[in-house]
């Protein structure tokens, strides 16, 4: 990075650290923070969407649909995320490739499973074997997002399902009395009101989501914990210009600070959001706000 970094052995402490902290690996480390934040930003709305669909399915009048929704919620919530991540990404990837394989190569006669191997025609591979590295990385990122969304979607579905049931019946009955159809009641009365009931649960879920990011490495994403372990581990002078002992402690302290900060910021933002959502709602919080304004 700096011109004096050519021979780090001769540098004083400050300069040594200025070189050490700007090496290529450290840049990857810093980039991984952005990667994690991006993943959180993308996953949260997708998981919420999946959760919404799950909740809608669970409260459907059609028995098979409602059973499907309920068993999705029960099964995925019952499994530790770490166990899920260990096999789900590969399964998801194989499923996509299998579907493409059936569509693109209908003449293929060999079985797709040969012993332990999973073989599809080259055109069905995802991404294609000769695709650029960034395509592979983006695909891996997408798989991670989908996996996270499916896991956390189940929790979100559970929370939203509870939120939908918590909207006072009187509100729905009033809507019906005004002549709204079922669909109108759902979208115009139930959905806008359920958020305030679901928000505490959803905030909790967001906190859990933040803290699940160290498991990203299982999904093939080099996340911050992976890099902290890699960088903090003992480095000998044969393989690095910056030999040092076991520094994992310091790197993990950095991560601790990052996670605590994320939590604090989220708490503040969610508190504000809650204030806004409670506005004009038929809850104790909404009542309090109204009284404050009146007084």
């Amino acid at each position: 990075m700096f011109s004096y970094c050519a021979d780090p052995n001769t540098l004083d402490t400050v300069r040594w650290f200025s070189c050490y902290l700007t090496t290529g690996v450290h840049m990857s480390f810093y980039a991984s923070f952005i990667k994690v934040l991006a993943l959180l930003a993308v996953t949260a709305p997708v998981a919420l969407g999946v959760g919404f669909l799950g909740a809608m399915a669970a409260r459907s009048d059609l028995l098979p649909v409602s059973l499907l929704g309920k068993s999705y919620i029960a099964i995925v919530r019952g499994v530790p995320d770490v166990a899920f991540f260990l096999f789900f990404v590969i399964a998801l990837d194989q499923m996509f490739e299998y579907v493409r394989h059936r569509a693109i190569c209908p003449d293929w006669t060999q079985p797709v499973r040969q012993g332990s191997e999973f073989l599809v025609c080259a055109q069905a591979k995802l991404p294609l074997g000769n695709a650029a590295e960034w395509v592979h990385e983006t695909y891996g990122f997408l798989l991670a997002v989908i996996t996270f969304a499916i896991v956390f979607g189940a929790f979100a579905a559970n929370v939203l399902f509870g939120g939908m049931r918590a909207v006072p019946r009187a509100q729905l009955e009033t809507a019906e009395a005004y002549g709204m159809s079922r669909r109108q009641t759902f979208w115009r009365v139930l959905v806008p009101q359920m958020w305030v009931y679901a928000l505490p649960g959803l905030s909790n879920l967001w906190m859990v989501l933040i803290k699940a990011t160290p498991l990203l490495f299982l999904l093939g994403i080099e996340d911050i914990v992976y890099w902290a372990r890699e960088l903090g581990g003992t480095k000998t002078s044969r393989f690095s210009s910056y030999p040092h002992g076991d520094w994992r402690m310091w790197y993990f302290l950095g991560l601790l600070a990052f996670y605590l900060m994320m939590t604090r910021v989220s708490e503040i933002v969610l508190e504000r959001l809650m204030q806004r959502l409670t506005h004009g709602q038929a809850t104790t919080g909404g009542e309090k706000q109204r009284k404050r304004v009146a007084a």
């Binding site: 090496t23 290529g24 690996v25 840049m27 990857s28 080259a122 055109q123 294609l128 074997g129 000769n130 695709a131 890699e230 000998t236 044969r238 393989f239 690095s240 210009s241 910056y242």
Partner: peptide, 30 residues
């Protein structure tokens, strides 16, 4: 192109010096 391996992807761990490791520049080395 698609049939033969136009690009061969080499999988490694990157944490087992001197066989394979991540060097200071962040690349696989060893």
């Amino acid at each position: 192109m698609a049939d033969g391996h136009s690009v061969v992807r080499m999988g490694t761990e990157g944490a087992y010096a001197p066989y394979n490791f991540i060097n200071d520049a962040g690349e696989i080395d060893g």
